[in-house]
Design a protein around this nucleic acid. Sequence first.
DNA 1: GTCACAAGTGTCATGTTAGTCATATAATCA
DNA 2: TGATTATATGACTAACATGACACTTGTGAC
Lengths: 195, 195
Amino acid sequence: MTPARFLTTGEIGKYCGVHFRTVIRWIERGELKGHKLPGRGDHRVQVEDFVAFLHRNRMPIPAELAPIEPNRRVLVTDDDENMARAMARTLTRAGYETRIAGDGLQAGVLLESYRPGLMTLDLRMPGLSGFQVLDFIRTESRQDDLRILVVSALDENELQRAVSRGADDYLMKPFENAELVSRIQGLLPLSPTEA
Amino acid sequence: MTPARFLTTGEIGKYCGVHFRTVIRWIERGELKGHKLPGRGDHRVQVEDFVAFLHRNRMPIPAELAPIEPNRRVLVTDDDENMARAMARTLTRAGYETRIAGDGLQAGVLLESYRPGLMTLDLRMPGLSGFQVLDFIRTESRQDDLRILVVSALDENELQRAVSRGADDYLMKPFENAELVSRIQGLLPLSPTEA
DNA sequence: GTCACAAGTGTCATGTTAGTCATATAATCA
DNA sequence: TGATTATATGACTAACATGACACTTGTGAC
């Protein structure tokens, strides 16, 4: 439950690095939507109005006020650029956001900065053992909610082994686009409005 | 709630010894990240962005703006585990904190989660071109203040090229421990109490 | 050396806004 | 309830934005 649906002038002032006196003047000028309470005439601003105000003025939005949108971000890792692009295109059409990582470093950085809800993992990235990757992500990374779909041309035994090491599902190359989408939808469902 | 601290153009001007008019121009030119307030259009800059700006331009950082302990974290990347351990040990003795990344994925994750002030980069990581790494870090990652020390057995020409691609300094293998420490101290100085 | 040029910075004047102070009152907390 | 904190308000002061222009510095051509 969100603790404060409404913000006071003082709170807004702190968020904006501004004196609350200034916030009152913003409200009086109509730049920031708010209302007055009986009594002393305190101002209250709805969080969403404040966020809209911040957005309108290109001001940074504090993380705790940002609306939590469902995670539909997919990180596609594959050193074969064409393959990666094709997968990303398919997923974009299906309603996902995608980023591509062509090597381990990019994958690592994007895992932390892009915070995907799912990553596809090629078990044969150059310089990386896919199993080491799984172990590392499951033990070192703090992303418990990250789904991992292993995509590889290895035989089914290996893929099964990947699942036992921490992958959530697997897909054998070559595969149909529809198959890719359905596997991913199984792991990271989209809400009806997004699909 | 942790409201971000903001600075005005005047405050920044005093910190930098320039007129606030100049600060405004920096912001308009995009060299310093900032945003405007409604009303008069005052600029506000987040402390964190200002510190990054100072770091980028090799300007001294006022102590009161870095209340968080100075960053003395070093990420050692080398696929040769013995080499990595030796470097880490040397740096630990010199007063640094260290983490080791044995492959690109670990390096990427640790770059974002460990937030080192400096990383040593082996130009010959399996599956990674060192130059691609430099490009990627300098363009994609938002860690402007990350120092990169290239450590490699490549010839001097290549190392020079690495510097022109975004590395801050280089060190040829093999090297003496003292040399390693002095290079890193040059890029990421420890305060007297830490040394 | 010097000349021209470009880019960055400081200065000035003007208009507007944001911060400060004092005081009153409501809201919050123990 | 009583004490403390937060907010509102008005008047005043300080700070900032902006445009125009001058000054400084660095660079390259001659």
